[in-house]
Design a protein around this nucleic acid. Structure first.
Lengths: 246, 246
DNA sequence: TTGTGTTATTTGTTATAACAAACAACATGC
DNA sequence: GCATGTTGTTTGTTATAACAAATAACACAA
């Protein structure tokens, strides 16, 4: 055995399609894609500085996951959620995230609760400072921090998939709903319930959190059922804004 | 308008990768792939009579859906379910299929129940005649017939994904468990509950059905947790047996 | 015999080009 | 003027070849 084994770490090889997939995922979750817009392979390939092959791979995986819709001509569209689709999504989310929370309450250690408490404090700070982009990120880490405690990888994977499906409109809650601090009390209450291992209580709070945010989003629907971004400024650029080349 | 509109029907264009994806799906569900075996792109391409491009597309979609595992070198493996993974899968399945059944009971019409009763009769006949391959198929149609009544497309899609994940070992229940008719009473009871719109009762029966079959599969696990096919005859051929060229 | 370096083979990844279907713009004919 | 056919452009699909990483087989030296 030589010195190398102690100081050098494993080199991870990440294919281009994997990086493209990751970037698209993050962009979706941050709401940087306009609902209803089409993802054009050659355009994205140019943005990423690759050929269309890895991009096609990344996009088709997203479609397979149900994160992107497939439009006419097998094109990939950013889902333009309607009221009914959102309602359905909420049914599955409450079911799965509720169950995960219940399991988490049974298994959470004191240290886990402390860590989550820290995230909660961060969330409050981000709102106070109007750092709404990073708020969304920490908020996500808080929820998934709970779900991870359940220790059921497959459950976690499916919940992640559901969030990705909501991705394009998730950020719609920021300007108005989040700033009014409406969700935070449910978060705090859920965490308090987890601390005392009250599984049913924790589940109820998380479900309430999801349904309250869902109701707000539903209230944004226009008569046709399409859910629109509440802000007054126009729609952002449709294709891969903010997605830096790898 | 001319005669053509009345006699000719829409021509559906189905890409090669879509057909490959469909065939792999069916083969998985029928248990024609040996758990733990690797899917080799060039081999499948030759089987299908295409280049590797559409095959790669189909396989990568399956991996993205979590239906296939990814092994070293980004290769695609038929999942070799261990006890813990199966247990986790059962948690999510009972949660989702239970909810779907409850919703179905609330919305089922008399005609729906009649149709399901027919499938149930078919299932009994298939067992009696030892047509176990077609039994599995009708059994699947029975379950999904119920879940479809819930009228929640996203829920249905996720349940389908869960079945695909169990696919490689689903057929393990056939030789011993199914023939003993252990599951059929739950099926009948669930349907009876749906008929009288007893959502909770129907849910309980479906959950019991899933958990009973799950327990049986769990009992097949060897000391390492790997779940083996109960029959005495050796493992079937690893790569795409019975998958006809398109 | 055992450890090590080399080579051949396997297999997923990427780029590229040819292809085909859909759509839009335009021109043509009644 | 409106319907219809034509053409060009856009864009996803497929085949092919070159590539790169991992693995296995083998040869050679200590």
């Amino acid at each position: 055995m030589n010195l190398a084994d102690q100081s050098l770490s494993r080199i991870a090889r990440e294919p281009l399609w994997d990086r493209a997939h990751g970037q698209l995922r993050e962009a979706l979750l941050a709401g940087r894609f306009e609902p209803g817009s089409a993802l054009v392979l050659r355009q994205l390939a140019e943005t990423f500085g690759t050929s269309i092959t890895p991009v096609r791979d990344a996009v088709s995986r997203l479609v397979a996951q149900g994160v992107l819709d497939q439009g006419p001509r097998n094109s990939a569209l950013v889902p333009d959620l309607r009221s009914s689709a959102l309602t359905d999504l909420m049914v599955v989310r409450t079911e799965l995230e509720g169950r995960a929370t219940r399991e988490a309450a049974a298994k959470a250690a004191a240290a886990d609760v402390v860590a989550l408490e820290g995230l909660l404090a961060d969330m409050r700070r981000m709102i106070a400072q109007r750092q709404l982009d990073t708020y969304l990120d920490i908020h996500r880490r808080f929820h998934f921090g709970i779900y991870a405690l359940a220790g059921i990888p497959i459950l976690l994977e499916m919940i992640e998939n559901l969030w990705l499906r909501c991705g394009p409109i998730l950020s719609f809650v920021v300007p108005e709903y989040v700033v009014s601090l409406k969700g935070t009390d449910h978060h705090q209450a859920a965490l308090d319930a987890i601390r005392v291992k009250d599984g049913a209580g924790a589940e109820a709070e998380i479900v309430a959190d999801i349904e309250e945010a869902g109701s707000y989003l539903l209230s944004l629907a226009d008569p046709s059922g399409r859910i629109r971004r509440p802000g007054r400024e126009g729609a952002r650029n449709a294709n891969a804004p903010g997605v830096a080349a790898p």
